[in-house]
């Protein structure tokens, strides 16, 4: 893929996605005390934002595969997210953006990789990943509140190991949409529809972790809340994929069914 394939006409301006992602992520983390469902649902927009950033950067063809970008974002994002949940989520977001920017500068300075949008994308990617992780991690243990890191988060999320599932599922949600849709006919709108669907998988997994937490510590997470998180995740998952498949079928040249049972028409 050459440079010509990178900037194309877009359905949604990346600027608006960034604003929407930051706003919904921050609101989601801070309103977690009302109900853990709020951060779980609002984690969709940061994931969509990060997936769009992956789309912009991987369009240049960096030769290492799209998932590496998703993993990089989650590697930086998880460090910032832990710092954010420990001290203050806004600080976590600021750290993610600043450190990502400096990382982009380092990569450029040592001439490891030279593509024009790298520094900007490296600022947006960890921020989106950190926001998504902060939302989901706080949603699993019943919403963010001051000082909940040592009391709730560590024993319920880290010691049980649920954090690993959320970590990799968020990485998948960020990397998968563009990885699945890339090609000459890739279109932003379609890729982002898939991103919503994969974000549903992430929320479902967070809901399953919340089901576990509801049995371990009923004080911070009730069983009905965890169950509704799973149901919301499943709805987003199925709905996102339904819309994505419909779009893909509408935009494809021809769809021929070759599976079982054979076509009767």
């Amino acid at each position: 893929m050459g440079e010509s394939s990178a900037p194309k006409k877009v359905t949604v301006e990346p600027r608006y996605l960034a604003v929407a992602g930051v706003a919904s992520g921050i609101i989601g983390v801070y309103l977690g005390f009302l109900s853990p469902l709020i951060p779980a649902v609002l984690a969709i927009l940061p994931i969509v934002w990060a997936a769009d950033t992956v789309r912009r950067i991987a369009g240049y063809g960096i030769g290492t595969g799209v998932p590496s970008i998703g993993n990089l974002s989650i590697g930086m994002g998880v460090l910032a997210a832990i710092v954010g949940l420990r001290f203050e989520p806004a600080i976590g977001l600021a750290f993610a953006a600043c450190f990502g920017y400096l990382y982009g500068i380092i990569i450029g300075k040592f001439k490891v990789l030279e593509i024009p949008v790298f520094t900007r994308c490296m600022t947006e990617l960890p921020a989106g990943a950190a926001l998504a992780l902060m939302c989901l991690m706080s949603a699993v243990v019943g919403g963010y509140s001051r000082g909940f890191f040592e009391v709730n988060l560590i024993p319920n999320l880290f010691v049980t190991g649920f954090v690993a599932a959320i970590f990799w599922a968020t990485s998948l949600a960020i990397a998968h949409p563009y990885n699945a849709c890339l090609g000459p006919d890739e279109r932003q709108g379609r890729t982002l529809k898939l991103a919503v669907g994969v974000a549903g998988i992430d929320i479902t997994l967070a809901g399953l972790a919340a089901l576990g937490v509801s049995q371990l510590s009923p004080a911070i997470m009730s069983f009905p809340t965890a169950l509704s998180m799973v149901i919301i995740g499943l709805m987003v998952w199925v709905g996102g994929y339904y819309v994505f498949v419909k779009t893909a079928m509408r935009e494809s040249a021809v769809v021929a069914w070759t599976g079982y049972p054979g076509s009767t028409r």
Binding site: G75, V78, F167
Partner: peptide
Amino acid sequence: VGAYLINANI
């Protein structure tokens, strides 16, 4: 693991 991923990508 976060630190590994950061170095892995460079």
